[in-house]
Write a protein that binds this DNA or RNA. Structure first.
Length: 324
DNA sequence: AAAGGGGTCAACCGCCCGACA
DNA sequence: GTGTCGGGCGGTTGACCCCTT
């Protein structure tokens, strides 16, 4: 297995690209097209290695690159795709026109990771952070009852409902991953939506059919995971019975809907389901230490994103403002 | 106003994989 | 089977920017 020579050999230049170098590269590629990266820098009159040229072109100079801040919709797409695809940044980038894998990777590491951590979600596995869940289990018995009483809940940062919610959300993602993996291996789905609620198990309504997967795969330009989720809840025409009443509460979750219409459509299927965003505290109430560098806009974006990510119901009188 | 610290992001490195000759 | 090449990936670096003190 041959290994390309590094950029430090033969006196090749490293570091930031100058405007002149950029122009040389652009001019050459416009004339001759890209490819043959090894010989390109020599032909273009650049003292760079081919790999450096390729990266510069694909990550920065390409004409279809979309610069600027990620939109809320793009945030949602990235999180959804990452929950399914993992760190396959190029695959994620393929579904985000104008964004590069490097850009998405950087954005993930600097923004989204922190956002998920603030939500108590492990950004690697999309699972609840064990430390928080352990806290949840420890606190659930003692705090849950008191949380029903607003006076007993005041001052508490830990709301078991929140942890259950996070568990629900993340279990759905894990289940979806399993299902997709199994589908890829011609194994039937493993999730039975009618399975009785047991112990700590969190009800899951997400189910991915082979048709859904095919649809997703057949439309690489369209981030359709929302549609998959939406189709599941709509077209299948059911909700697990366990979804409808658990301990007297209706529970549900929703995975990143793109618009309110879909949220409302879904919500109608569960009478007491309300947008999670309406239960969130205002961004200014967040005390997370991870938020030091966030601008007001970022905080608002985070709040918006979270509101679309998770939906559940809580009993009247339960003050959830302190739990986020 | 200046210094220090943290966040951001373009760019790089090392390794790997698949296609091809 | 082996070497070459293009490309992808995770991790890291370092310059720059902004905020706080």
């Amino acid at each position: 297995m041959g290994k390309p020579p590094g950029c430090d050999k033969n006196g090749l230049k490293k570091g930031p690209w100058t405007a002149e170098e950029d122009q040389k590269l652009i001019d050459y590629i416009q004339k001759h097209g890209h490819g043959r990266w090894r010989t390109l820098p020599k032909n273009a009159g650049l003292k760079r290695c081919g790999k450096s040229c390729r990266l510069r072109w694909t990550n920065y100079l390409r004409p279809d690159i979309k610069r600027g801040k990620f939109s809320i919709e793009e945030d949602e797409v990235i999180i959804q795709l990452h929950s399914v695809l993992g760190n396959k940044w190029s695959a994620i980038a393929a579904r985000l026109p104008g964004r590069t894998d490097n850009e998405i990777k950087n954005y993930w590491n600097t923004h989204i990771k922190k956002k998920l951590l603030r939500m108590g979600i492990d950004p690697v596995t999309h699972a609840p952070r064990l430390d928080l869940l352990e806290l949840s289990s420890l606190l659930s018995s003692s705090l849950y009852n008191s949380s029903l009483n607003p006076a007993g809940f005041v001052g508490s940062m830990f709301n078991p409902s929140f942890f259950s919610l996070a568990t629900a959300f993340l279990s759905s993602n894990q289940t979806k991953n399993l299902e997709i993996n199994n589908l890829a291996g011609n194994i039937q789905q493993i999730q039975n939506p009618y399975e009785p609620y047991q112990g700590n198990q969190v009800p899951v309504i997400t189910q991915v059919s082979q048709a859904d997967l095919n649809q997703f795969s057949a439309n690489p330009g369209l981030p359709n995971l929302w549609q998959i989720d939406n189709n599941v809840s709509d077209s299948k025409g059911f909700l697990p019975t366990t979804m409808q009443n658990i301990n007297g509460y209706n529970h549900g979750f929703y995975l990143g809907d793109q618009n309110l219409q879909q949220v409302c459509t879904f919500s109608e299927k569960i009478p007491n389901l309300v947008p999670f965003g309406s239960l969130l505290s205002t961004p200014s109430s967040s005390s997370t230490p991870l938020n030091n560098g966030s601008s007001t806009e970022d905080i608002e974006r985070d709040s918006y994103c979270s509101s679309n990510m998770l939906i559940f119901d809580v009993p009247k009188g339960l003050n959830v403002n302190g739990c986020m």
